[in-house]
Write a protein that binds this DNA or RNA. Structure first.
Length: 635
RNA sequence: GGUCCCGUAGCUCAGCUGGAUAGAGCAACUGCCUUCUAAGCAGUAGGUCUCUGGUUCGAAUCCAGACGGGAUCACCA
């Protein structure tokens, strides 16, 4: 509608304004509820060029539109705002159009370019936690939104399956895992512990032994025993001790020095040396180490897979760091020849980004090995090779890595890859607990599996208390609780603008009233209940013929859906979809409370309203689908 | 210290391509189930949009500065 009005104004600009006006002067906004009208034109910009009062201009435009456009029913002017009222028939036609499209609001599938969305990308030494949940739900939802917007999408993740961290778990398992009567060490099979949790347990176990050993070393040093330690280390320690004594009144400085001493001691532990040795063996493909590595990673993948299934998310393509960590090296060496990078005397390779307002960044260590940045360069290039028609990668990664991605994209650009500017860092804020930031050392990490189980449990309680469960089997009830619990969690994490840091309040997150998934799901279930009854009463839902103001207001809301998807896709922001679903449902609930639908005596109106409800339900379902949230037929 | 992000009701958040009287949810208080699912609806109360300047007919929104919070600046990932 707005487009039509804009067109008419532009085409008749000479006649109306005496000159050709710029398109951007035509500004629409939603008509505020307290005024009559469907579309509002802001007329201040015109009054400026016409040098007359906004009210006069508004009146002139209003009269003109009413005369020229059949679908303009009337208009009113309030303080320079032209509120335009559209004919009911226009809206009735809109609804009939919406009803015909089973995927209303979505664009033609695969009508736009191919995008890759990366999300999750966990380490294989720790189970997934709350931070991953925000990441995963976001990445999945953005993928669905891009698809609905017409893009072809590849969901991917890079699995951080190699490095010192996984060696730590491996070593701890080999060394500290108890042996049962059959002579086996702990496995997911013989303990019943989920694979990722078991490996995580040994990562923690490593850390305990690691810290203890470091403490013992410090105790030895403090007692003045330095036999068996390299001279440099002894010297460094003594230097630090001396510095500490000098700054004994500066608490902060002492703390810093103590941390340095601890790092120094940690580097002298045999357990770390052994883990590093294991990494060297892994890189040399030592068969025994490799077997242990594949076994333990296998456990982790089984564990992650179970978690992803509970989350109802998936991936189209996996990248493993063990395959990609060597990539990028050659590219960096090429870049070195081209002069993009430079080499320091010790052999390390760097890029100088100071001209771009950034620092110098290391790309290859002096021993020739890669760092994270090098790998990311390689992986990005690999992906564009794997998918030649790829039109950009969206990296779902927390905002602590804003700088990293800024540098990555800049380097790719400097290397001459023109697709670099199509890469986007979907940066999201940290999830805080009421007690502050999650810290693994303080045991405040919220485990993903535990949290999901808790949400489902809470849904279970509420469903038993107030659900409409007549005729549902146990399995169906379990499915319903899953839908409500997981839906609630997704909704809670997605409703906030991704860019912003958010507070996760465990008590509030299991809440099922207000701005929550169950609120929306309940609205949907109510609609389905109406439709079931209509069906059992054999009411034919053929076409929309007659509607009243209250109904038409809802059609206006429905017709916004396509724009919401566009905006959400352009800004990679599922929260826009969440808020839309909430507002639509709220509007429906209010309508439902005050209007007769099934009980409406006028048959044409009753059928029209049922079709309206059916389509509200459809849009709620399609909207929630973009968030990865299911809707129940009854609850 | 440099760079980046954030600051809106008691709490959690919308609104930010400048436009009408700044909105929701939670918490508090009042009503509404013999009537289509009360996980709901209607209402009351709650604001110096951190502060100070600037641009503008018009600023929560744009610009500058201050204050407060966070992130980041590793031969870690």
């Amino acid at each position: 509608m707005e487009e039509q009005i804009k067109k008419v104004l532009l085409e008749n600009s000479q006649e109306l304004f005496g000159e050709q006006i710029e398109e951007k002067l035509i500004q629409f906004q939603q008509t505020r509820r307290e005024f009559e009208g469907d579309v509002t034109l802001v007329t201040f910009p015109f009054s400026k060029i016409l040098k007359s009062k906004p009210e006069e201009v508004a009146g002139k435009i209003g009269a003109f539109l009413k005369e020229r456009m059949a679908s303009v029913k009337s208009y009113n002017v309030i303080q320079g705002f032209l509120n335009i009222v559209i004919e009911d028939d226009f809206w009735i036609n809109q609804l009939n159009g919406i009803a015909k499209e089973s995927q209303f609001g979505y664009s033609e599938p695969n009508s736009k370019s191919l995008k890759m969305v990366e999300y999750s990308s966990p380490n294989t030494n720790k189970p997934l936690h709350l931070g991953h949940l925000r990441n995963i739900f976001l990445g999945y939802s953005v993928s669905e939104i891009l698809k609905a917007n017409g893009h072809k999408v590849i969901k991917t993740q890079i699995i951080n399956d190699r490095g010192i961290h996984i060696c730590k778990s491996m070593l701890a398992w080999e060394r500290f895992s108890p042996v049962n009567q059959k002579g086996e060490r702990e496995t997911p099979q013989n303990t019943g512990i989920k694979g990722d949790k078991l490996v995580g347990k040994y990562y923690v176990e490593f850390d305990i032994h690691f810290n203890n050993e470091a403490k013992e070393i410090i105790a030895q040093w403090e007692a003045g025993r330095f036999d068996g330690f390299p001279k440099e280390v002894t010297a460094e320690y003594q230097k630090l001790e001396k510095a500490k004594a000098e700054k004994s009144d500066d608490e902060k400085a002492v703390k810093e020095i103590n941390a340095k001493i601890k790092d120094l001691a940690k580097n002298q532990t045999t357990i770390l040396r052994d883990a590093k040795e294991m990494l060297v063996k892994w890189e040399a493909r030592d068969p025994q180490v490799y077997l242990l590595w594949t076994t333990m990673n296998g456990w982790v993948y089984d564990g992650f897979e179970a978690t992803y299934q509970t989350m109802e998310v998936d991936f189209d393509k996996l990248y493993y760091e063990s395959d990609t960590f060597i990539l990028g090296r050659d590219v960096v060496l090429e870049g070195l020849e081209k002069g993009v990078f430079y080499r320091k005397e010790d052999g390390s390779v760097w890029i100088d980004l100071t001209a771009d307002g950034m620092d110098e960044k290391l790309l290859l260590r002096s021993d020739g090995t890669s760092v994270y940045m090098t790998q990311d360069i390689g992986t990005a290039i690999e992906r564009f090779r794997d998918y030649p028609d790829l039109d950009g990668i969206i990296y779902t990664v927390a905002n602590e890595q804003d700088y990293h991605f800024k540098v990555l994209f800049l380097i790719l650009d400097k290397l001459g890859y023109d697709w670099a500017k199509k890469c986007y860092h979907l940066s999201y804020g940290m999830v805080d607990l009421p007690t502050g930031r999650m810290k693994s050392r303080e045991g405040t990490v919220v485990d993903a599996d535990d949290l999901m189980a808790e949400m489902i449990g809470e849904a279970d309680k509420m469903t038993a208390e107030r659900g409409h469960l007549e005729g549902l089997t146990k399995e169906q009830i379990a499915e319903l609780n899953h839908t409500i619990g997981i839906g609630g969690l997704k909704y809670y994490l997605l409703k906030i603008d991704p860019k912003k840091r958010m507070m996760f309040n465990p008590l509030e997150s299991v809440e099922l009233n207000g701005h929550t998934a169950p609120f929306v799901q309940y609205g949907y279930a109510r609609i389905q209940s109406l439709l079931r009854k209509a069906k059992s009463e054999n009411i034919a839902l053929t076409a929309v013929t007659k509607l009243e103001t209250e109904d038409i207001n809802l059609i206006k809301s429905l017709s916004r859906f396509r724009n919401v998807i566009d905006e959400a896709a352009n800004s990679y922001s599922p929260s826009l979809v969440v808020n839309y679903c909430f507002e639509l449902t709220k509007e429906f609930n209010s309508y439902y409370q005050s209007i007769n639908i099934l009980k409406e005596e006028n048959e044409a109106l009753r059928a029209s309203r049922l079709i309206l409800c059916e389509n509200i339900g459809k849009v709620i379902r399609l909207g929630m689908q973009l968030l990865g949230i299911k809707v129940p037929e009854r609850m």
